[in-house]
Design a protein around this nucleic acid. Structure first.
Lengths: 186, 186
DNA sequence: AAGATATGTCAATATGGCTGACTTAAATTT
DNA sequence: AAATTTAAGTCAGCCATATTGACATATCTT
């Protein structure tokens, strides 16, 4: 195999992997370690679902749509656009497939019959629960060792990573109601 | 604006947002909350860099390449393919741009002159450090409130989220040497 | 009646993935 | 020395997912 380490076969500069800080900018050092851990953790986290989705001929985009429609039944198309931060045209393609194949249904709003309120069907629920199950398995494994207080720290960390200006409907639901966080909504 | 809540304008099923468990699979409930927090946290985390990259005419793919080349100087093309889990052809396009525009240079390996070892130039370092600075700012904000033990929990959680079978060179560096667990690294 | 809004759709384009086939140069094996 | 394997690069084309701009339709608001 040769050369499996990062030793320096060409006399070039040494690895910066363990520097802990860069010479370039931040006074207290850049958080290279967490930046990379987030990259790999998220890659493998979504990989669980990606693999399963292939069998259905779906991609990550279908998963995101189905997930939020299942979780927030009656979501409007406009809400979904806010949450996913994509354009109507991009959503249209994916949503049409999910509708055509019976994972989602639309109902006209009662107050405003222009609106198309979205709901997951039983078929849609089954798929989204299967995917969430895979991801939950990984999360449970990762949370097992750090205890309840660690899990709380993780939740608090993730919440604090999210932009709070201009929240969409889903974020309002997450941060608004029964979910007071470190500082709540401020 | 109308209808800013998730109340039920069409008599449809209630929101599942606060269920805590699904009727579908997992015995102890699916971790919907963390699944969603991860989605939003990662979306905003990479959004910091994405926005800045636009000004350079680069995309997320360029960032990933430049990041790992900077962090692990002398990385071979084959290593990069393992880490990013993309094909040679996909990498080729972005790598060529980064080479042409002077963010990365290649050197032939000493032991094996077929290899092209990759190094970030000063120009490349400046860009990658700028991007890491933006992401570090967000991380610092998020970690500030949970204290050192919370930060350790987050690190431990993220490490446990990553697949350990078939690790690439970078993961070997992260998990192998001076990084027995959530501690050390300094 | 006029205007604004919610959704859907057309056409064109870009990015970043993919596969398969092939070349070149250099290392390794026989 | 010759054959094979390996590392990298490239060509050609395909697909998924994103983009913008323009426009149609139905419906709500004024």
């Amino acid at each position: 195999m040769a050369d499996l380490n990062f030793s320096n076969p060409s006399g070039a500069p040494d690895s910066r992997a363990n520097e802990g800080r860069s010479s370039a900018t931040a006074p207290a050092g850049l958080r290279w370690d967490i930046i990379e851990l987030l990259f790999f953790a998220y890659r493998d986290f979504v990989g669980d679902a990606d693999h399963e989705l292939e069998a259905f001929g779906f991609g990550r985009a279908h998963h995101r749509v189905l997930h939020f429609v299942y979780r927030y039944p009656g979501l409007k198309v406009a809400d979904l656009l806010d949450v996913l931060r994509i354009t109507k045209q991009s959503l249209g393609r994916v949503l049409k497939q999910l509708l055509d194949e019976g994972y989602i249904v639309q109902k006209a709003g009662n107050n405003d019959r222009r609106q198309r309120l979205l709901f997951a069907t039983a078929k849609g629920e089954a798929l989204v629960a299967k995917l969430a199950g895979l991801q939950t398995d990984r999360l449970n494994r990762a949370l097992r060792d750090i205890g309840p207080s660690g899990a709380d720290a993780v939740r608090q960390f993730l919440r604090a990573m999210i932009d709070r200006d201009d929240p969409d409907k889903v974020l309002e639901a997450i941060f608004g109601a029964g979910n007071p966080t470190a500082k709540a909504k401020e």
